[in-house]
């Protein structure tokens, strides 16, 4: 038993940080390694950012993602937990549900229930809903704590 490798998808949301805190708690208990992942949504960028802006925007987002991952890795390290940061580009849903769990042999995905935007917060984030439906890996969905971003 049972959680050697835990995947935690991160974005800028409060719920993602909540999920990370839970994952750190589990990792301490089970001596697991955490894989923090951020996926730069290049498909979405391509939709809005045709033309010259595409490369700049992608680079901006990758830079932001790198900073986010580095920052959260500090949190993991200071808790005495082993961690690895993964920066991917592509479709976040498919990457989190399928590609990353297979590549890193993940036992558990820990993610927040709601998404970043207000509409998604009403029920369940579309990424979380997608991952629960489509992944072959166990998923731990962390409930909202009622706090706003």
């Amino acid at each position: 038993m049972m959680y050697d490798k835990i995947l935690v998808p991160l974005d800028q949301s409060h719920n993602a940080d909540l999920a990370l805190r839970h994952a750190i708690g589990l990792a301490k208990k089970f001596d697991s390694k955490l894989y923090l992942i951020n996926v730069v949504d290049t498909e979405r960028i391509a939709m809005y950012g045709t033309g010259m802006g595409y490369v700049d925007l992608t680079q901006d987002l990758r830079k932001q993602a790198k900073e986010l991952l580095a920052n959260r890795m500090e949190e993991v390290k200071s808790a005495g937990v082993a961690g690895e940061a993964i920066l991917e580009s592509g479709n976040p849903k498919a990457t989190i549900a399928k590609t990353a769990p297979a590549r890193y042999d993940i036992d558990l995905i820990v993610m927040g229930k709601s998404g970043t935007d207000a509409l998604e917060r009403i029920f369940i984030g579309s990424t979380t809903a997608y991952v629960v439906r489509h992944t072959d890996t166990n998923v731990l969905v962390i409930a909202d704590d009622g706090e706003d971003e």
Binding site: H22, L108, F123, I124, V132, N138, L140, V141, I142, A143
Partner: peptide, 10 residues
């Protein structure tokens, strides 16, 4: 998954 208020593991 959609409606429970606590954490859920699938």
């Amino acid at each position: 998954v959609r409606h429970a208020k606590c954490d859920i593991q699938i």
